[in-house]
Every structure is written in C-alpha cells, then in structure tokens.
Design a protein around this nucleic acid. Sequence first.
DNA 1: TTCTAATTGAAAAACATTTTCATTTGGCTT
DNA 2: AAGCCAAATGAAAATGTTTTTCAATTAGAA
Lengths: 159, 159
Amino acid sequence: MVYNEKQMLNALHKHGYKVTPQRRVIIGVIMNSHEHLTPAALHERVLRLDPSVGLVTVYRTIEILTELGFICEMHAGGGSRSYLMRRPSEHHHHLICSDCGKVIDFTDCDLDKLEHRLAQENKFKIDSHLLEFLGQCRECNKKTLINVVTNQDKSVPSR
Amino acid sequence: MVYNEKQMLNALHKHGYKVTPQRRVIIGVIMNSHEHLTPAALHERVLRLDPSVGLVTVYRTIEILTELGFICEMHAGGGSRSYLMRRPSEHHHHLICSDCGKVIDFTDCDLDKLEHRLAQENKFKIDSHLLEFLGQCRECNKKTLINVVTNQDKSVPSR
DNA sequence: TTCTAATTGAAAAACATTTTCATTTGGCTT
DNA sequence: AAGCCAAATGAAAATGTTTTTCAATTAGAA
Ligand SMILES: [Mn+2]
Ligand SMILES: [Mn+2]
Ligand SMILES: [Zn+2]
Ligand SMILES: [Zn+2]
C-alpha cells in the first residue's frame, strides 16, 4: 500500500503545515519516482518543474515527510550517505542493487525470535531494527555475466 | 575473537603498508576503545597521545583498516553518519543503544532462509546484508525507568 | 648508510547539511 | 474581498565532513 498525493497533502494540512506550491512539486516528484533519491537528486528533478525552488526547501520538506512517515531513509552501505525513497506504509526492509541502485521492498523480515533472544541475553530493550540486503538485480547480473564471457580471453590490468 | 595490536601491525606490513608511529597510535586507540568512534572522535583521542597526527592520516588509516577487515562501519540510524569500531573477525551484526551508544556484537543472524527466498522471488543475487538492532541497554533503561518514577507527578511542559 | 616509494600534515577543495534573516505568502479571521 | 500574521521561502553564510593536492619527511629494503 502506497499513499497518494492527495493523502499526503491532506496530512500536511492536518498537521498544521501549509500546502505550498513548492511542497506540491516536491511531493509530486517523490510520488512519481520509483528509485530512492538523495536530497540533491530530488532537488535536481524538482528544478525541472520549478526552477525557483531552493535546496533548503527540499531539505525542510524531507524532514516533514519523514516525520509524517511518508518517506524513509535508506542505508546502501559503503561510505554512502543516507538516501530516501517513497515507501509503503508498513514496517519493511530493502533489497538494494549495488550496481544500479534499484530498490525492492519486502515486509516479512521475521526477526521476532532473534529479537527476543538478543533482548534476553543482552538485557536490551529493543525498539527497532535495520535490515538491508545488498546485491545485484537481475538486469545488472546479466550485464556482468555477458561482460565476463566477452572479456574472458582479454588480459586483466594488474591494478 | 578479537585481533591484537601485534597481529594488526603484522598485517599492515604483510600487505605492503608501512608501520608508522601514527598508525601505531591510531591502532592503539582503536584497540583500547570499546565504543564505536567517528573519525573525528578517534582523531581527538589520538591527539592526546600524539598531538602532531593529522585528521587526514586518521581517515587514511581507517580506510586501510577497513580494507584489511580490522574495523567495520556502523549504521546507528537517524540522520547519523557512518561510524566505525573495532570488530570481531567473523560476520556479525550490532545491538546499539540509542542513548549511550554502547554496541554489542552478535554473530548468529540466521538470515539464510530469508536470503534464499528473497533471492529467488526477486531474481536478485544477494552478496551481503546489514542488520542492526536499535534500543536501550540495561543501564540506560534503568535510568529511564527511574526518571519516569521520579517525575511521575510533575507536570509536563507542552513542547 | 643510501635510496626511493610510501606516508605525512597543511591547506585547499569538494560536498552535504544547517542556520540566519529579510521577504513573501497560505489560509484563517474579519 | 481584504487584512493579517505565523509559517514558509530563497539567498547567503556558517558548519561539518571527507577528499584532493602537494611539498617535505621517513620506513624499510638493498
Ligand atoms: Mn524495518
Ligand atoms: Mn561490529
Ligand atoms: Zn541493478
Ligand atoms: Zn546505553
């Protein structure tokens, strides 16, 4: 289940935030993008629709939308920063393609048993968890395999 | 199982890296710290032992130690950046206290079944995963409970 | 001891995010 | 419809983190 634009704008209003043209555009871009976006990437797309929107406004809107639960952060490993993406409404996790950045959500992490045991053994009160699988999507894997076959006789540079 | 200082210095040498006084100090600080450290926090502690070591060298050493597998990144959620800490040698994950930053490692994540299923269903080639539990350690939880009891009759400021 | 590629620190550059502030505006009240 | 004002905005500056550049130093092999 994914929120639609009207629901998001209503929620803004309901929580005392003003529905500005800038916020409309930003929300529109997020809604119509299936990838996760950095603030900068989001801003770039917003500029195409309204060149006057500032990056600061993008940051501020991201903060609100996160607070309202419409978007969520992503951790794609490596030295990479936190990204964001539109999100289903339930607790979920990510399958991330390290090559192209494609993201697939999944909801059944089934970590309750593990969580319970860890809580007991370590006297921790566990509030939440972060789980992400990193790998290669089908398309990127195909490309890799083709490259391997094509270049199998070529010598490899030593560094 | 945790590496000792000598092993780490040997590994540096073995991989063609020079064993410099700076690297000795940095490794020493990491070895003797049980918390995870940001590059800046690590540098701060290094300065106490050798005020001439530059932050750049800390970054460069972090990179090498990560490559050699002696330290690993941490993702403590929120807008937080990537942290690092000393680490056991095997595949493992973290239990992180959101209050004091205490970290407990655990190794048995047992995600194979889930990984297999996700790989099949989504045609993904999964290389690795990231799993962290966030919560409150015993001590911090105690403090919280005491505060709740102590302040239960006091009025709460509205913001 | 000599030699040299690796390493270092300082400074600058490159980025990412937050703060400040004067101006504008959404939307409630008349 | 007009007025009002707290909320929101963009520009610019400030803050913070990480990387790059470069000349000087040095670890360690010969
Ligand atoms: Mn989750
Ligand atoms: Mn660890
Ligand atoms: Zn891909
Ligand atoms: Zn704690």
